[in-house]
Computed example of a mutant assay.
Amino acid sequence: MTALSVTITHGSTRTILTLDGELDMVSSARLTDTIDAALQGGRQHLVVDVANLTFCDTSGIWALLRAERTVSAAGGTLELANVRGILKRVLDLTGAARAFRINTAGQPASP
């Protein structure tokens, strides 16, 4: 069974969505729903912290790309934080990394 939890932390200037678990075809709707809810709640500057992501398939990559487009279309910004390992490699190899602001520093995202 695919498990993905999303923890939301609201700061004064941005909202951090911390992903924990697997982002794939089954769980990507959870990310999409969370992004939509944040935007509907007036939050425009989002950080998706992927430090605890244990798996991400092509459906997960597409979900992240859709999230970036959705946030940009709403006039906001989306940053990926703590991108490393296989996710960084896949984003770099596919060219998808160019679609995001990416923090690879390995530091916890802060609001």
Rank of each mutant, 00 (worst) to 15 (best):
S12A: 15
A38I: 08
R14Q: 15
L78G: 01
R101T: 14
A97E: 04
A109I: 09
M1Q: 14
L23C: 09
D92P: 12
T18C: 03
R30F: 13
D36G: 04
V47E: 00
G75D: 10
T58P: 09
L53W: 00
L91Q: 02
S110V: 13
A109H: 12
I8V: 12
N103L: 11
L19Y: 09
N52S: 14
T104F: 14
T34F: 08
I16F: 03
S110M: 14
R14L: 08
A105C: 10
R89K: 15
I102A: 04
E22G: 03
G75V: 15
D33E: 15
A74E: 02
S59R: 02
R14S: 15
L64E: 03
P108M: 10
D36M: 07
C56H: 00
I86E: 12
C56W: 01
R66Q: 10
L80C: 03
L17F: 10
V26W: 01
A29Q: 15
V90P: 09
G75M: 02
V26G: 04
A63Q: 05
T2W: 05
S72I: 08
H45T: 12
L64N: 09
I16D: 01
A37K: 07
I35R: 02
I16E: 09
R43G: 03
I35V: 14
R101W: 07
L53Y: 00
A74I: 06
L80F: 08
K88E: 08
R84I: 02
N82P: 08
D24Y: 07
R98A: 00
A37G: 12
M25F: 15
D36E: 07
K88S: 07
R98Y: 00
R66G: 12
Q40L: 13
D36V: 05
V48M: 03
L46S: 08
D24L: 02
N82L: 04
S12I: 10
V90I: 13
A51H: 02
R84G: 10
S72G: 04
M25T: 14
I86F: 15
F55M: 01
A96D: 03
I86K: 15
A38H: 03
T2A: 14
L53N: 07
V83R: 00
C56K: 03
E22R: 05
V6H: 04
D36T: 12
T7L: 13
A99S: 09
P108Q: 14
Q107D: 10
L91F: 09
H45S: 06
C56S: 00
G76R: 09
S5I: 05
R30Y: 13
N52Y: 08
V48T: 02
G11H: 11
I35S: 02
A74P: 00
F55D: 04
G75P: 12
P111A: 12
T18R: 15
G76K: 02
T9V: 15
L46Y: 07
T104W: 15
G75S: 08
R66N: 01
A3P: 10
R43D: 14
K88T: 09
F100W: 11
G95N: 03
L46Q: 00
I16Q: 02
G60C: 08
G75K: 05
T15C: 11
L4W: 03
R89L: 12
F100L: 05
A73D: 00
T32W: 08
G21P: 08
T70E: 06
T13N: 13
G60P: 13
G75H: 01
F55Q: 06
G76C: 04
T18W: 02
L31Q: 01
A63T: 04
L87T: 02
A67R: 08
S5P: 10
